[in-house]
């Protein structure tokens, strides 16, 4: 499933780039993320609990950042699997300076498997978009916080 879109984050390009690669920020922004633990250069292990209405599932996953082009683009690869299935998102993010902040344009592919793919087909598209929206909303909120406090104080 292809996903694409854009979101305005109210910080400058470089700051947006840093935020998007900050594990603490990512951990807070990823919907359902419980823990995000560094396992290598630009690679993290993640535990997620996805809850949507009655549906819930624990996922064990990986977050990887690749093809870094500071501060204009990078690839974000998120993988998770659990009892109810697995998902894999691979997206290219472009950061473009815009009025009022940075426009983050994303384009990528989401794959799902297992029970969630087989019985949730009707809702996959809607859900994927909602998750992405929540991610950027959280990220924006983090950006707003970071704008008023120094990054060092947060970590």
């Amino acid at each position: 499933m292809k996903v694409s879109g854009s979101y305005l984050i109210t910080v400058a390009q470089q700051r947006a780039y840093e935020l998007l690669q900050d594990p603490v920020v990512l951990g807070k922004a990823m919907p359902g993320c419980d823990t995000l633990e560094r396992v290598g250069e630009h690679e993290y292990r993640m535990k997620m609990k996805m809850v949507m209405a009655s549906i819930s599932g624990l996922f064990d996953g990986k977050v990887r950042i690749a093809d870094l082009q500071p501060h204009s683009s990078f690839r974000l690869i998120v993988e998770g699997s659990g009892k109810i299935g697995f998902m894999k998102g691979d997206g290219l993010l472009h950061l473009i300076p815009a009025e009022g902040g940075t426009n983050v344009q994303y384009e990528g592919n989401v794959e799902v498997g297992g029970t969630i793919a087989a019985v949730g087909q009707r809702l996959l598209d809607t859900t994927a978009r909602m998750m992405i929206k929540r991610f950027f909303e959280k990220l924006s909120a983090e950006a707003a916080v970071s704008a008023t406090s120094s990054p060092a104080a947060k970590i």
Partner: peptide
């Protein structure tokens, strides 16, 4: 089937 071999019409809901 999705290209990755997942059966998308995997239940009577679809």
């Amino acid at each position: 089937y999705a290209d990755n071999g997942q059966l998308l019409s995997g239940e009577l809901t679809d």
